[in-house]
Amino acid sequence: MIRMSKRRSPSNRTQRDASSGPEPLAGHDEADGPLDQPADEAAPRRWKLIASGLILFHLLAVVLPPLAFQTFSLDGPSPLVGTLIRPFAGYGQFLHMDRGYAFFAPDPGPSHLIQAASTNADGTLTERMYPDRNDQWPRLLYHRHFMLAEFLNDSYWPPGPPNEMFESDRPAAELWQQRRGRYEWIRQSMVDHLKSVNEGREVAIRRLEHGLPGLQEYTEEPIALDDPRLYNVLLDQPIFSDEIAPAPVTTEVIPAPEVNGGADGDGDATSNSLEGQSPDSPASDSPASDSPASDAASTEPTTTKPEPQS
């Protein structure tokens, strides 16, 4: 590298000046010792070679994870990127660099929420939404809850697999089991947390999707962004079934809200009603009433931990 430094020329200086960033100034790393002896430059040269190697390693660990993310498909990452990333994977994972950086991409989509209901001693229900701006403050705390709701949704894997799949494609069936197990464990961890902060009361949760109005629709007929029509309960049902909501659905259900009673709508109230919702907790009841899930949501809340599948 030092050999290259000797080649520095006015034209190169101009190039450097046209480049970016920090102003290069006197180099104290090159200053020690007599100036005309090339031997003095051997130590920095070694140092620079080592530093260059480390820099290259780090840069590859920075670039390859988002590349792997981009090339990922149902079959996994591309064979080339999957092989290339292997030596850097652990390093990137430890430094939290195994990210795809796909912010609002490929398209900004709907939000996902968690609706939780806890059963009180008198049999009434307390419903809360996560995230909820009235409950979680400051905004960063709200956003952490928002991310948890999105994480639950991202982890979702439908019930299954069908028995015949074990015979036709056993690895795929086992992968299915594993993913489903992962989702159930995550959901159960959330249920357990909510139980712990609700004095041990029974808690059940389900996922909601908050859709976005299209630009044209909105222009033609403006709609409040928290309009109940934009919320949907995400059903937990086997995808291989022809039925809309095969019975019995044993997961992700909450006791069906009763029709009468009042709620103050702040998400913290005892809610027996489909009415009285506030703009900040619009989905606390409407999805249950509008969706098939409300019919299916009569089974017991899940409380047992599924075993992780190996």
Partner: peptide
């Protein structure tokens, strides 16, 4: 190219 690399990474800065 090596010189450019050297200059990019190893030019001391404040």
């Amino acid at each position: 190219w090596a010189e450019a690399w050297d200059r990019f990474w190893f030019t001391p800065t404040r």
